[in-house]
Design a protein around this nucleic acid. Sequence first.
DNA 1: ATTATTTGCTTAACCGTTTTCGTAAAAAAA
DNA 2: TTTTTTTACGAAAACGGTTAAGCAAATAAT
Lengths: 337, 337
Amino acid sequence: MLARELQLSTATVSKALTNSHEISEKTRQRVLDLAKTLNYSPNPYASGLRNKKSRTIAVILPEAADSFFAQVIDGIESVAQEKGYHILIRLTHESFFKEQAILQDLRGGRADGILISVSSETRDSTHIKELQEKGIPLVFFDRVCEDVDTDKIVTDDFESAYKATEHLIARGCRRIALLYISPDLSISHQRMEGYKKALEDHQLSWREPDIVACTHDAAVNHQILTSLLTRPDAPDGVIATVEKLVTGIYLACQELLLRIPGQVKVIGFSNLPSAMLLNPSLTTVTQPAFEMGKTAASLLFLELGKGSKGKSSTGGKTMKRETLVIPSVLVVRDSTG
Amino acid sequence: MLARELQLSTATVSKALTNSHEISEKTRQRVLDLAKTLNYSPNPYASGLRNKKSRTIAVILPEAADSFFAQVIDGIESVAQEKGYHILIRLTHESFFKEQAILQDLRGGRADGILISVSSETRDSTHIKELQEKGIPLVFFDRVCEDVDTDKIVTDDFESAYKATEHLIARGCRRIALLYISPDLSISHQRMEGYKKALEDHQLSWREPDIVACTHDAAVNHQILTSLLTRPDAPDGVIATVEKLVTGIYLACQELLLRIPGQVKVIGFSNLPSAMLLNPSLTTVTQPAFEMGKTAASLLFLELGKGSKGKSSTGGKTMKRETLVIPSVLVVRDSTG
DNA sequence: ATTATTTGCTTAACCGTTTTCGTAAAAAAA
DNA sequence: TTTTTTTACGAAAACGGTTAAGCAAATAAT
């Protein structure tokens, strides 16, 4: 509230700026003109303090340098900006501890709502429920906590893993390995089950050693994958349930002189725009990242909107919490040729 | 300032929470304990209002779904979080108009400092200078405005384009095309000059038609590239100055049955982690994205720190504005075999 | 014992808005 | 003209904290 001190009270200025009806056209223009020449912008935090709104949503991600999350951000931003909201990015770097700290911080009211994809270490969800109890709406996307009652946007992990597995079987694979990173994640579990079901449905019972746990460390993964591909009963098909592992397989195959898809066929859960350019081009399960971000944000705003609607004729305070499933698509390319 | 109403004044609580020395150990513990059980977090905007700090920096990007910018965000976040700052992401979607609106909004004090990579439409920089005049520190990264006096973090665009061109010449190319998108961008200009210089230094004068303007639209680019590769004097080497164009060339070559690197050699300015897996693997000029984000943020915090240092013994208010150049690296792979 | 100092807490002002309420002047109704 | 209503604005409280200043009690110095 700066140079508005050019004759009027702050109250008048505030009203003029919000086009209140109780301000004469004349003074309103004076204020608007001055505001323009002074390039005035009101302090959002002051006004936010007053009307208890930050017009900010927090987006909590495990990591940033990932094409899936980058596209999700795009989707979120596309709806946030049209609602006049701002997005605060917070990274957990896959750490449960950081996730807790971030949510704790958010209890202060920094954001009106939260969009979150939990860290791979997250087993317990009390830190999330506490936020909810405070009345801060929260929507999960991709990586959800089953036991929290709120909207969730996911993709059809079970079905796409099923289809991916079935596709490999159809292409002649008889021993298919599944690569995953975080056993506790909802998505890992779903994909694993889809994989098992597909094998069983095709009379190929699954075996424990074919479901291989990888890490966040590329070097360690290289070890793991090399030994996987060189063991006596090496797989003739591999499904990487996370993008990060695709590179590992390709590199390991290159090094071991294993031909893709000749000796090993590969499918990756990936949103890499360059999948079609890989050597060979990669058959992918592509997630609707942008759409997921967009609908997650939309659902959050629906929730945020409910707060302001004073006239609830239906008294419908308990709208059903949906788990929205947006399907992924299997794009067949040369790696499963 | 919630349930602290359990015997003490708000002032006492505030001081206890900040470990003020003028609070007895006993009451301090009482407060801390209550805060813990109540899971209390102070409202950051209220305190920010008082001490005129938002502990937030805004990061303005042309787009989100780009591996370069994703890595930059990672770098920025790595220093912001250790300073206890938060990052607000704002996307211009390459629109000058949006960029202006965002900076206008930022004048209100939403962020203490700004990190920006300008939109491709940005020619004028008065909207940026106005922010500076308000005393809000701003640091450019990658795409800078030459005429704004502030810190800038860039990579050695001229030199890396020079080296890329030289590399193609060394590999036998005689007609090298340069693909760019935004003629007004500092980086485009630098890269173009490096390219020209390299050609001249090797007795291969550059020709206007070999410097080809592309667009943000993949379909249009496909047209452009197809006609480039099929014209009578088609190039035997191509340099894509932006990641987005790499896909275009690969696809066009695939379609036209042009062998890379046999008939056309390709170099891309790219941070794609999958460059090594492309078909064929791509020779890249890889930018130090993470580092750029990190140092840009560091420089911004240096500037932010100056504000609070009351005891300026040297009176050094005018620290020199640096343009920090972090070199890119040319990674030779099969596409220029 | 008296005065000076320190300790520990409270009161009140402040940050920049919004909003309720009050009120003087202008317009309309009587 | 007097009364009522409307119009256009200002004063003040509120949002949730921080901080300077004030003050009483406990402690130290004289």
